[in-house]
Amino acid sequence: MLMGYSFGDLGSIMAMQGFAGLILFSVFVLMALGLAVIFGQMGVINMAHGEFMILGAYVTFLTSRLFTTYLPGAFGAYFFVAVVLAFCAAGLAGMAVEWLLIRHLYRRPLDTLLATWGLSLILQQVYRSVFGAREVGVDQPEWMMGAANLSESIQIPINGLIVMALTTLIAVAVYLLIFRFGWGKQIRAVMQNRAMAGAVGIDTARVDRLTFGLGCGIAGVAGSAFTMIGSTSPTAGQLYIVDAFLVVVFGGTGSLIGTIASAFTISQARSTLEFFLSGSMAQVVVLLTVVGILMLRPQGLFVLKVRR
């Protein structure tokens, strides 16, 4: 018994809040996946990751506007176009940033952190100048606003299901790319010994750029999903960066399953607690718990013992 709720009630609350948290969970997973690629594989801290997500959100917003104006008949399908565009836009922007900035700083992780923070400030100001300081919301097509009846009492929002499916698709793709097709090996080889990786025929500059671009592109997709739960503003990305980093380290860097499991744990704990506490206190409790656990187990939850 907890605060007057029976366990049966608690189960229902968990389930309902759980489904309500589907999109938040997806945003977390996508943000964290992007970071897991960039931070977990390359060891680069990208503080502008949230701004790449917001770039995806603005692209989604623009796409929806374009469809309303020029293709109102096809509005129902705009989201899928937007996702692809968001991925490309954020990915290309990421590759440009890697070329202009990140590649000069690979040996200096703390400096990268500060430089990308500077980049995030610049991007925020650019968004503000281009899109205005006000928040923008995106209309969703009619059919995505509905809900599927799972049982009489439990309903699942359709948009949640779509985002969920998209997230699964991307997670599987990243898994295959990094862990099955050997790209991860190339990335780690480059990070551990750049000269040697180059000597055995890996195009190190290309690996760096594509990896960083991939991570940012996934953040862009997170932005598309984000438009469904929040309104887009120049500074909205900053709110997610700390959570996203905690998700990655909590899961254990380099562990894809860990990243997803920890995104699930954190987002579900938060939406469940929000039922009992105010939103801000739920966030405090979750963050404190995660930080507390990380202090006891800094390597994260899913990491193997290796020789240092």
Binding site: L101, L105, G118, I122
Partner: peptide, 11 residues
């Protein structure tokens, strides 16, 4: 300016 300062100082 602040953003550029971060980048400039580091790079």
């Amino acid at each position: 300016a602040l953003g550029s300062l971060f980048i400039l100082v580091v790079v």
